[in-house]
Each structure stands twice: as structure tokens, then as C-alpha cells.
Design a protein around this nucleic acid. Structure first.
Lengths: 186, 186
DNA sequence: GTCTATACAGTGATAGAC
DNA sequence: GTCTATCACTGTATAGAC
């Protein structure tokens, strides 16, 4: 039995492994172990090795957020887009069981390797959310602070719910954040 | 030239390295490289190797928070203790330049190794903060939610300020959180 | 207590057979 | 495209001289 892959099939598998183990602890042998994909195939698709794999994963994650979260925040009805963000974020992070790869990379030396991808992800999230809040009637300065509070709050909720191994903490945190961002609009 | 250490001298040095690199990327050779302490000495003080080093660091961090943050929150004037928490946290994390080791450990597989230490740190932080909020006039359920919001918010602010490489994001986030926890008290 | 030397499993990476 | 074999290197850990 032999499976033939495309690059696009591998990236989500890699993403899950990087998410669970972090960049440093993700070794090629553990990737092979979990996916059944040999080193030969991995280096065929990612000649740059582990770093190229992680970069591809980051780009994939970014594309998902751009499509599912940021664009609606920038273009659609502000109230609906913000509401959709909370439910999509809760689903994407599996109520806190799944962590944010970009946030995790930001916390250790991995940040230095991917600083522009990491920075861009958060910058665009905050900008898109601020845009929606302003369209919903919020002043620019307040919208900026609220957008930062929302995005940071999600990251913190992931850390906390994982530390306590309790998904209710994550869901409850999202509800609290939603109220905070809702209160100012009219 | 030869320096003789005590275990207590080494732990803070290890803490800084674990904080910067994370558990997996912290190797004994990098510890030696940065501290000048040889493998022989390290294994003399920590026969359990890297895992015992990290456990000692976590215990040290925990002791600091217990003394500087949790105990005041439980015992001192509630308003003053909460206010002191914000300034102490800002100083301890160097306005976001320094990350929270416990939070970072919670995000990858390192959590499994130290789950009780990680869980205890956050449980006791939240409990102590809730106690202070209740003494300041907050109902129990609301105090619980606010305490979680505060602690999670700090973790999120660390992620965000590091991702954006911007200490003002951290300081501003703490101010916003302080207002949130202040609003309900009378 | 600290150092040097060393064991040996695991690392990322490459080359060539198929 | 995938596999196996192999590379040089670094990982943790140990033993013994000083």
C-alpha cells in the first residue's frame, strides 16, 4: 500500500502537528510517525525542510483567517461579521482544545524566524476588527483599543483554557469579550 | 578562573533561558553557552536533567507570584492589592518584553509534563483575584468571570505585544483590563 | 563542585534505487 | 513521488579525573 500526496494535502497535517508540539519539538521523524509520509516525500514537497513546512502552514492558516474572518469584518455588515467571528473562532479553536499556532510561535524564539508572518496575522486581524467596530458606530481610537482587547483576549483565553484543561473557560471568555465589544456600539 | 554556584543562583538564569527559548529548544549546551556552567555542575544540582531544571524554575516562578501577587490579593486591602498587581505584573513582564513561562508551557506538549504546576499557578491566581474583587464589593459569580478575564487578558497581552513587538500594546492592555475590573466595584 | 571525555539515540538533510 | 540508506551533527546523560 502506497499513498501519493499533493502538497495541499500535507499542509493541514503538518499544521496539526506544529500546533500540538510547537516548532522546536516537531521533528521529521515525528511527522513521519504520525502521517506515514517519509522523509523523501517531505523533502520533495518542502526542499527547505522544516522551516519551509512551517512557513507553508503559517501561510495556510493566514489564508483561512483572511477568507473566513478578516474579509467579512472589512466588507460585510459589521454587526453580523463580528458575531460570526465569535462563532467561527470558537469552532476553529475547538472551544480551546486547539491552540493558535501563530500566537504560540510568537512566544518563543520561533518568532524571530517568522516575525513578519506573525506580525501581519495580528495586524490584519486587529485592523479588520477595528474597521467593523467603526462601521458599527465606534470612534477610531476606541475601536482600536477594543479590537486589541478582543484579539488579545482570544489568545489569553486559549492559554488559560489549556492551562486549566477546561473548555468552558474558553467559551465563557469569548462571551465576555463579545459583550465588551458590543457595549459601545449603538 | 572558576566560579562556584549554589542551586539558588542557577535557577533564575535557567528561568530566563527557558522563557526565551521554550522548553524544547532549551538544550544543555545552550545553557552552558549562556551561563558558563558546565554539564557536570548542572547534573550535580539537577540530577533529573532538563526536566528537573524546568520544574525548579516553575516552582521559583510560582513562589514569586505567591508572595508578590497572590498573598496581597488574599489578605491586604482589596483595592490596593489589585492596583499593586497591575504595576507588579507590568514590571515583572517588563512591559511585555518578557513572557510568562507558565503560559508558554501551557501551549505545547510541555503542558503534559508539568500539568499540575501549570494548572495550580493559574487556579491560585484566579482564586486570589476573585477573593479581592469580592472583598471590594463584587458578587461571587461576577468576580469569577472578571478574575478569569483579568488573568487571561494578561496572557493575551503578552502574546500580542510580542507578536507585534510593541510594548505599548502591553501597557495599554493592562490599563484597559484595570478599568474592566474597576467598573463593577463600589 | 567542576571539568573533560565519552556513550549512544535522535536531529535535519542528502543521494540513489525503484 | 516514494522509499531506504546514510551523512555529519547535536541531543541528553554518565563516568571518572581533579
Amino acid at each position: 500500500m502506497k499513498t501519493v500526496y499533493e502538497r495541499a494535502d500535507i499542509v493541514p497535517l503538518l499544521a496539526e502537528i506544529f500546533r500540538e508540539l510547537g516548532y522546536a519539538a516537531t521533528s521529521l521523524s515525528r511527522i513521519t510517525e504520525r502521517t506515514g509520509i517519509g522523509k523523501g516525500s517531505l523533502y520533495h514537497f518542502f526542499p527547505g525542510g522544516k522551516e519551509e513546512m512551517a512557513a507553508a502552514v503559517l501561510a495556510d492558516v493566514d489564508a483561512w483567517f483572511e477568507h473566513a474572518i478578516y474579509q467579512p469584518l472589512r466588507r460585510d455588515d459589521a454587526r453580523q461579521a463580528v458575531a460570526a467571528m465569535w462563532t467561527n473562532v470558537n469552532d476553529y479553536f475547538r472551544s480551546g482544545r486547539r491552540i493558535c499556532l501563530v500566537g504560540a510561535f510568537a512566544l518563543d524564539e520561533t518568532r524571530e524566524r517568522f516575525s513578519s508572518a506573525i506580525g501581519g496575522y495580528f495586524i490584519r486581524w486587529i485592523d479588520a476588527l477595528r474597521s467593523a467596530l467603526m462601521r458599527a458606530g465606534c470612534a477610531e481610537e476606541e475601536a482600536q483599543v477594543l479590537a486589541e482587547e478582543g484579539v488579545a483576549g482570544i489568545q489569553g483565553a486559549l492559554v488559560l483554557s489549556r492551562a486549566l484543561d477546561d473548555t468552558t473557560v474558553f467559551t465563557r471568555s469569548l462571551e465576555t469579550l463579545a459583550k465588551r465589544l458590543d457595549a459601545v456600539r449603538r
